[in-house]
Design a protein around this nucleic acid. Structure first.
Length: 607
DNA sequence: GCCGTTTTCGGCCCGACTGTTTTCAGTCG
């Protein structure tokens, strides 16, 4: 039984309890489910090692839920859950995916019409049966049908890297409106989560109506879920939903904090507020209960204009959005010990770029020019090697020829008259970087060698020794038993010619799981061999992922953020890699390509 | 059902919008 499956059981119990209007227990079960989901160990192992006591250590899990976990691990069933299922045997997860249908309506639909799943819900709505239920009407029925159509079409979450470009476009359009005094993107986009459920825009304005009207009539909008005086939500043609919220200036900090989330982070903040005799909502932080949009009669609004005010009033350092997941950041902020995160402008070069020597789009010179215009000081060309025929992998001879070309280009890029990079890279606008000149731009030659099934590489050591650096990655035989795969990668880590392991866990978000590996052993080996692990910025990779990055930092392993670009159009993906590094609590010193080239190369194996 | 630097009992985060009501429940974020 996987942790996620067990968590799902408790989430569903929470839903069933909500249907019965049981107070407080639903939240307790939800909390336990969150606690289980957040575990980085298999719950089976935790139970094996420490029994019931160890289970009760899990946040949100007490005696009663620990016993239910035990029951589930032993028998594969939870009686308490099955009793609910017997009473209401419906596919809750499926039905409540439909916008506007929650647990209460799901219950009614089953009791009145016997609806158990999405297909039956659709059939009933088409026959016009839904409107016959008390409390349901024609409009609800129509909305349910539309909701089902959307559920069928969409998978739910969207890759950060896919969603960002259209979101930035819409952001620009909204920003241009004269009524908009200030605008931010909040929500999981601001937190730079690897996948995004929906997009939240937050705006300051004294005149919300024209903004909301403009928002719902954007050409990207295909469905208006709701439209009120100060907020609205819509579906875009790209498939994702967007919310907009307009607030007055004095509430902006509180609103930005509130709508950035995460939900778990905010709940803790509100509790801290209550402990201090304060009240926190999206309108501000108030000195006494009863605060509201108009300001309660007895409560006084404390400074809420910016987020720092809110955090300060709660006795906390301002917390970067990427950390707001209630994973220890609040405790760190209380102790004034938050990390100073690697910045979006700190990267000095990208060492994982493919060129037209293989199947990638651009020549080395084109890549170098693009890198210069992004403000980089160096770029690393790392084409695939010969095992990957489909990518026209390079052999020993071609690598030598490529080295000659790079030598010539490097001579060309030494420009003693150029000004040094005047400002740090504004990564958030990487799509349109400023032109700037670099005194000494350097092209490094690497390669991305293939880690074969036995852990050896597909190219001769002598050839590797002539390169500036070597990346090695797994590109075949993904499905090996855990022990073998771990050994395979560790052998590559120990290879005296290998400097960097690319996309170390091999996952493709929403497509392919990580390889079966013992990640702790990989980390220990990387630490011992001083081999660097890559944070791959490609939108569907983001590998290492945030939680693994944090583990790697704890293991004192060095990391590098690369894009794995096969075209210069992908160089700006760097932003996503940096964001994951930040989510993994990395500081500048943890990331080697924040260093100038001479210092960077000290982290490579002696050649 | 869980949890505790005021507590082992008595608390549990909060407000906008919609649709169906005639004063509010359900849903969502």
């Amino acid at each position: 039984m996987k942790n996620s499956e067990l968590a799902k059981v408790f989430y569903e119990i929470a839903e069933y309890l909500k249907m019965d209007r049981v107070p407080f227990k639903p939240q307790a079960y939800e909390k336990a489910a969150i606690g289980i989901e957040a575990l980085d160990k298999n719950i089976k192992d935790i139970y094996k090692k420490g029994g019931l006591k160890a289970l009760e250590e899990i946040p949100g899990v007490g005696k009663s839920i620990a016993e239910k976990i035990e029951e589930c691990l032993k028998t594969g069933r939870v009686k308490y859950y099955e009793e609910f299922r017997k009473k209401l045997p419906i596919n809750l997860e499926e039905i409540t995916k439909v916008e506007g249908v929650g647990s209460q309506k799901a219950k009614m639909l089953y009791e009145k019409l016997g609806i158990k799943n999405l297909a039956e819900l659709e059939a009933a709505a088409k026959k016009g049966e839904i409107r016959t239920i008390a409390g349901f009407g024609e409009k609800t029925e129509k909305n349910i049908l539309e909701g089902i159509a959307f559920v069928k079409k969409n998978t739910g979450r969207f890759l950060l890297g896919n969603i960002m470009p259209p979101v930035k476009e819409i952001y620009k359009k909204l920003k241009k409106l004269k009524e908009v005094e200030k605008i931010d993107i909040a929500g999981s986009v601001r937190r730079m989560k690897e996948t995004i459920g929906d997009v939240d825009f937050l705006i300051i304005s004294k005149n919300p109506k024209p903004i909301i009207d403009f928002f719902v009539s954007l050409p990207e909008v295909i469905k208006i879920w709701n439209k009120g005086k100060t907020k609205s939500s819509v579906r875009t043609k790209y498939g994702f939903d967007m919310d907009i919220r307009v607030v007055p200036e004095k509430s902006y900090g509180a609103a930005l904090q509130y709508f950035t989330g995460s939900k778990e982070h905010n709940i803790v903040l509100r509790k801290i507020a209550i402990e201090k005799g304060l009240k926190l909502n999206e309108y501000g932080i108030f000195s006494a209960p009863g605060g509201s949009a108009a300001g309660g009669r007895k409560s006084k609004m404390l400074p809420s204009k910016n987020e720092k005010d809110i955090y300060k009033t709660l006795g906390l350092q301002w917390i970067p959005p990427e950390l707001r997941e209630n994973q220890g950041e609040i405790e760190a902020a209380q102790k004034n010990s938050l990390p100073f995160l690697v910045g979006y402008g700190d990267i000095k070069g990208d060492l994982h770029c493919h060129s037209s020597w293989g199947t990638a789009k651009n020549s080395i010179e084109e890549i170098a020019n693009a890198a210069i215009s992004m403000g980089y000081e160096y770029i690393g060309i790392s084409d695939h090697t010969k095992f990957l025929k489909i990518e026209r992998g390079l052999d020993e001879k071609q690598l030598a020829q490529q080295r000659e070309e790079i030598k010539k280009l490097n001579a060309k890029f030494q420009n003693p008259n150029a000004k040094s990079n005047p400002k740090s890279l504004a990564t958030r606008d990487l799509a349109k970087p400023d032109k700037c000149q670099i005194k000494k731009f350097r092209i490094l030659q690497g390669c991305e060698a293939n880690i074969l099934a036995d852990g050896s590489l597909d190219i001769k050591d002598e050839a590797l020794a002539k390169l500036d650096y070597v990346i090695a990655g797994v590109h075949s035989n993904f499905k090996m038993p855990k022990e073998k795969m771990t050994e395979r990668i560790i052998r590559a880590i120990k290879n005296p010619n290998v400097d960097i392991i690319s996309h170390p866990t091999g996952r493709l978000i929403q497509k392919r799981d990580e390889y079966l590996i013992d990640f702790d052993k990989i980390l220990a080996a990387a630490k011992a061999a001083e081999t660097i692990l890559e944070i791959n910025s490609y939108p569907d990779r983001l590998d290492l992922k945030d939680t693994n990055i944090r583990k790697a930092k704890k293991a004192d392993v060095r990391m590098i953020i690369n894009t794995d670009s096969h075209s210069i159009a992908s160089l700006p993906y760097m932003e996503y890699g940096i964001s994951q590094a930040r989510r993994g609590w990395l500081e500048k010193k943890d990331v080697i390509n924040t260093l100038p080239v001479e210092k960077l190369m000290k982290f490579f194996k002696p050649r």
